[in-house]
Design a protein around this nucleic acid. Structure first.
Lengths: 317, 317
DNA sequence: GTGAAAGCGCTAACAT
DNA sequence: ATGTTAGCGCTTTCAC
């Protein structure tokens, strides 16, 4: 009889002692079975290493444990198949909610409908399928792209290149759109050959992309990259060509990775507020759990990014 | 009746179909309750962001899911108090095993005895309390320190400094001992003022430590740092003093962080085989679960580190 | 105030 | 070859 206000303090005392003696340990699973609750929260990420998702998970774990939830983490390894299996795993673990960041290869929504059918709150974060109506916590990637590009324009850059990621993912599409709109706002032309589409955003693809841009008859005087790793590669290539950063080519990246302060010059980047994203996702889950009836409403939480200006883009001052 | 070999295929078929129709979902928790199993594996790490633990967890998740286990992750945030609470959480989640990397502030073993008393396999990884007999997966940090230092000696360095971490943690103590023994093997004196003890291993403490070493009447011609972040700070300071890396001061770090390939010059470092460590920890857990009776035996799995030589320590060739 | 009983969804052992 | 039953450890309800 758990903490019943009717019970006398004396009896409680006696029970407590006995329990201690017998080394008793409550079984939450059994409790959960009875109440139909598990206090388990499922999380699916494409991968867990890498700063972004690790930091988001840190935020999730923090907020979840405050609300008395434990988290179960699964990785999709960027494969839809895995993702589908993760869903099964989580459902049979009786999670009370699912937080997902989509794999790169996910193009349809079918496996998530099962979750919704069972009335389990489903919250997406960061990566979301375009054209679906879901509850989600997102970074305003558009603003990130816009801010970054406008900053470069303010620094006097006029031929600004862009490393774009896979366009079926909203995040990359929005970063690119922010870039385009900033150019337009300032009356600069958007030139197709200044945009390089990369499948993966690694140091190596950044190197290749930069080489491609430097081969142009008129080379760019700046690059806004959708990823920090790629811009780090670009930095290497620029210097290998005997050019200076930021004087000849100014650079900005995305994610505010730890290493952006370790390169020379340090890299300007967009901070994604990873931990807040994790916390916000949990908050949204808790909120959905309360409502539960009016599932018609669709919630979007949008976090504002912050431009961290460092030497790689600073031409004046 | 689950996959009973006695049942006819036809009936199975019929049941399957009906189940599908009713949208049936097995409840693992209930099954677990009955069988006294939860297929849950608890993991406690000091923190989850940062490459090392993220990568180990990746390894754990991989191996665990192959064995049909889900993992529950908790963070101690480097505080014993949290760690104690994490243990409670995991026990009441009915985990079948616990994998732990100790918090920096853990000095006693009491809260783990509870786990052992309940007969739940307990595996430590990377961070272990000195002087305790436990099952553990460890990196041979001693070998890492030795290899690193000997490499610097082979490069012609004679006054080799060391950034040492908190010595109550075996990992840092062993790295330092490897350093000392390598010096001795090659007939070099171990000078107290060349060892800087750092509480935390950050870029900033690395900067301070390097400043301290450069203030010495005879400055070192190399530094072996117990951390990559600290050696990145050291690199900055060396160059700020107008000295060259590796010509004037050669540098090596520890962890083989991603950014070691992004600095200029690139940083030599010791690879910790993070993912293997995670996998090995799960293997050890599975093994312990089989034995269960002869819990007297104590297992240690030791992984060998690998020196990744890069420009920051290469004086010849 | 306190104890007894029913049942959450499943599996194991037993009876048909 | 199939149906039935008794719990796993807890909470909730209801009777004492």
């Amino acid at each position: 009889m758990n903490n019943d206000p009717r019970i006398s303090a004396a009896t409680k005392q006696r029970v407590q002692e006995l329990a201690q003696q017998m080394n008793y340990q409550p079984n939450h699973l059994a409790a959960g079975l009875r109440k139909g609750k598990s206090k388990l929260l499922g999380v699916i990420v494409p991968f867990i290493d890498g700063r972004f998702f690790a930091a988001v998970i840190k935020g999730i774990e923090l907020a979840a444990s405050q609300a008395g939830f434990n988290i179960i983490i699964c990785q999709s390894n960027e494969e839809v198949g895995h993702e589908r299996q993760n869903i099964e795993t989580l459902l049979s673990a009786q999670v009370e909610g699912v937080l997902v960041s989509l794999s790169r290869t996910t193009h349809d929504f079918a496996h998530f409908e099962k979750v919704q059918q069972r009335g389990i709150p489903l919250v997406f974060f960061d990566r979301i399928l375009l054209g679906t109506e879901v509850n989600a916590v997102l970074l305003d990637d558009y603003a990130g792209g816009f801010l970054s590009t406008e900053h470069l324009i303010e620094q006097g850059c006029r031929r600004i290149g862009h490393f774009a990621g896979p366009q079926h993912l909203g995040i990359y599409k929005n970063r690119r759109q922010g870039y385009l709109d900033a150019l337009q706002k300032h009356g600069l032309p958007a030139l197709d050959n200044l945009i390089v589409y990369c499948n993966t955003m690694t140091v190596d693809t950044g190197r290749q992309a930069m080489q491609q841009l430097l081969r142009l008859p008129e080379r760019p005087d700046a690059v806004f990259s959708s990823s920090d790793a790629a811009v780090a590669g670009a930095l290497q290539v620029v210097e290998e060509h005997g050019l200076q950063v930021p004087e000849d080519v100014a650079l900005t990246g995305f994610s505010n990775e730890m290493f952006t302060s370790l390169t020379k010059p340090m890299l300007t980047s967009v901070d994604q507020r990873c931990e807040q994203m994790g916390e916000a996702a949990v908050q949204l889950f808790l909120q959905l759990r309360q409502e539960k009836k009016g599932s018609a409403t669709q919630h979007h939480v949008v976090l504002e990014p912050e431009l961290r200006v460092r030497a790689s883009s600073l031409r004046r001052g």
